[in-house]
């Protein structure tokens, strides 16, 4: 069935939507249509893609206004007979056509303190970890860094708080580090002071668009917010901290039997 695709063409300085027609076959996804258009009508149509199976997170775009992976959006799930609108992510500067400059995300990650494990539990340098503990962290580590959650987040998309807010992707990243049972680092002060966790007002848009179905808001962001509250605002904790001088996580790690 011939289907019309209205695709954004242009760069940071100027651009417009252009209509293309592609033949929609069984099981086809939006990325297939973009490739068909590339091969037959617009060889310089820019788009990123790699795995074509929802595992690498390269082909992020907005399809009919929704942030989605082009490789996982089937044409038969879209309204039949209607024009399909494909445009680049809006939260990042445009490079060309469907390609945006996502380098900011890579800079953000560099600023987050890396994993710092406690001393190994065993002589061969390994640790013991229960599957239940692994489960919690593994949910976050499913992230394919498609940055669709960053794209949909109004703090970044509409309010452009990129310098002050790391966005849902990196709150998930901090969560997997903080909840890793082997980790000894403390990232809570930065979360509050530099990474802007307070900006998130839990509208859960990020959770809705996550192609990996990570429960970003409930499982990652809210528990982190709670940790910030515990450390900074909880009166009972404050009292305890006054009476017992808090020990650094490092010291705790040292006292564990190795």
């Amino acid at each position: 069935m011939p289907t019309t695709f209205r695709i954004w063409r242009g760069d940071a300085t100027k651009g417009e939507f252009k209509d293309y027609t592609a033949e929609a076959g069984e099981g086809m996804v939006v990325l297939d249509a973009v490739h068909q258009i590339q091969a037959t009508q617009a060889p310089d149509l820019a788009c990123r893609w790699n795995c074509k199976a929802g595992k690498c997170g390269s082909c992020s775009a907005e399809i009919n206004g929704m942030p989605k992976l082009m490789c996982m959006t089937r044409l038969d799930d879209l309204p039949p007979g209607e024009t399909v609108i494909v445009e680049p992510m809006q939260a990042f500067p445009l490079v060309k056509d469907l390609v945006t400059d996502v380098s900011w995300n890579y800079e953000v990650k560099k600023r987050i303190k890396p994993f710092r494990p406690r001393k190994p539990d065993n002589a061969d340098g390994t640790w013991k970890m229960a599957q239940e503990d692994a489960d919690r962290v593994q949910e976050f580590r499913k992230c394919i860094e498609c940055f669709l959650c960053q794209d949909v987040c109004h703090v970044l998309r509409d309010h452009h708080k990129h310098p002050e807010f790391i966005g849902p992707r990196f709150l998930v990243h901090v969560a997997q580090l903080e909840m890793n049972p082997l980790d000894t680092e403390d990232r809570i002060p930065e979360l509050k002071e530099k990474q802007g966790i307070g900006y998130c007002n839990i509208t859960k848009c990020c959770t809705k668009v996550c192609p990996e179905h990570i429960t970003i808001t409930d499982n990652a962001i809210i528990p982190l917010k709670e940790r910030v509250v515990d450390q900074y605002y909880d009166p009972v904790m404050k009292l305890i901290q006054l009476v017992f001088k808090p020990r650094k996580k490092d010291e705790l790690a040292e006292t564990k039997p190795s």
Partner: peptide, 19 residues
């Protein structure tokens, strides 16, 4: 493989907590 765990990889576990 063990080195990966040191760098933050979280593998599936055996009942006794090993990789």
């Amino acid at each position: 493989v063990r080195e990966l765990e040191k760098w933050g990889a979280v593998f599936d576990r055996t009942p006794d907590g090993k990789i």
